[in-house]
Amino acid sequence: MIIAQQKPIKDIAAMIEDCKKVLLVGCAGCVTVCLSGGEKETEVLASSLRIMRRLQGNPLETVTITATRQCDPEYIEPLENLVKDVDAIISLACGVGVQYLAERFHDKWVVPAQNTMFVGGSRTHGVWEERCGLCGDCILHRTGGICPIIRCSKSILNGPCGGSQYGKCEISKDVDCAWQLIYDRMKALGKLDKLMEIQPPKDWSKSRDGGPRKAIREDVMIG
């Protein structure tokens, strides 16, 4: 899922300081699962902003709703009636949701309540870890299911480097050396010989180096 963290409330309040009425739109997708932008967080943010503005003697009117997903036009379409009389829309989705709202309601001031951080998973309740670098050319079959692109601080393809000490990365004792993990796993699987194949430089054009990406499936297109 996409992991996002809410911006400091003061920063969000500053973005809507001129507004009298705002629509807060939560997202029931990834940000609900990572507990940063779902129905509950949307209500808490709305209440916090109302209290802040009331303390300043400048009351704020809020309308809240949580869309099934903000990254699908069909789920933001029903917001049209709510958007009409608000001065701004605060999106609690990832950056995709903010952009989809801004694109659909192009005459409205749409602001992000979140910092979109990474693609990852839950380690334990309340802890999320980055697990995919979205490189566009997966190599996990060669590395024992451990991604060196995102879990190695240098994203090297033929590791480990000299900064690997006792299984940890030189950047922090809290960061595992991905290549140590890869070696241990390949050894346990009896596939160490696979690591002897030298990997050529990666084709980064399939990642962000090729500019914004688009995925097309003609077989599922309608019309």
């Binding site: 503005r53 009331r54 809020t62 809240t64 709703i65």
Partner: peptide, 13 residues
């Protein structure tokens, strides 16, 4: 200070 109004639009849209 006067309170601002709030409205919750149902469950997940």
């Amino acid at each position: 200070n006067k309170a601002g109004t709030s409205r919750k639009e149902g469950d997940v849209a």
